[in-house]
């Protein structure tokens, strides 16, 4: 059977495009991962304290910390508290109205399945509406990283979304 010229051209075009798509398409074991972290900030008015609970996929977090510290990725996704805190101080940063960095202290972590919950706290600090936040967690690993921050201060609620390269935004 002689294949018509048009069909030949269509099929050739299709297979050239297929080869290009195969070369550039997703090759990870997990086809379409959601690269996201979720941070929940709560401001305690009477203590003038800000508490942050950050949920992150443990494997991604361990890979990001390992990359930053230039060491091999741990097999069990474990990250020491000191390394986790150092990473957060670089990538999850509050600044006050004068542009000074707000010091964060570590208040623990907890593993639940694939997810790691990280806790940080800032004491004697202004309410979130007087602070700016920059959240670039894991952005060095994934171009499609999206970090969500939800803030609560009294009756006020706000949500923010950070992507790679985003600058600081008002924390409320």
């Amino acid at each position: 059977m002689v294949m018509p010229h048009g069909v030949k051209c269509s099929l050739t075009l299709a297979f050239v495009l297929a080869a290009m798509a195969l070369a550039t398409g997703p090759n990870e074991a997990n086809a379409h991962p959601l690269h996201t972290t979720l941070a929940q900030l709560t401001y305690h008015d009477h203590e003038r304290a800000l508490e942050g609970s950050i949920r992150v996929f443990a494997g991604d977090f361990a890979a990001a910390v390992a990359k930053r510290k230039h060491f091999a990725m741990p097999n069990d996704d474990r990250v020491s508290d000191a390394d986790a805190m150092a990473y957060l101080q670089d990538t999850f940063r509050f600044t006050d109205a004068d542009g000074h960095a707000v010091p964060l202290s570590w208040c623990g972590s907890r593993r639940a399945g694939d997810v790691l919950w990280l806790c940080v706290r800032a004491s004697n600090v202004a309410p979130p509406n007087a602070l700016e936040l920059s959240d670039q967690m894991l952005c060095e690993l994934f171009d499609d990283q999206i970090n969500i921050v939800q803030a609560v201060s009294g009756t006020r609620h706000a949500s923010m979304l950070f992507t790679k390269g985003d600058g600081a935004k008002s924390a409320m």
């Binding site: 018509p4 010229h5 048009g6 069909v7 051209c9 269509s10 099929l11 075009l13 299709a14 297979f15 495009l17 297929a18 798509a21 195969l22 398409g25």
Partner: peptide, 24 residues
Amino acid sequence: RPPPSAPAPLRLRVLAVSSLVAVV
């Protein structure tokens, strides 16, 4: 300019796109 004996243009498009998608 596919020859008159070739399938209709829409059919050619369906073949091209679907072959690509099926292979990937």
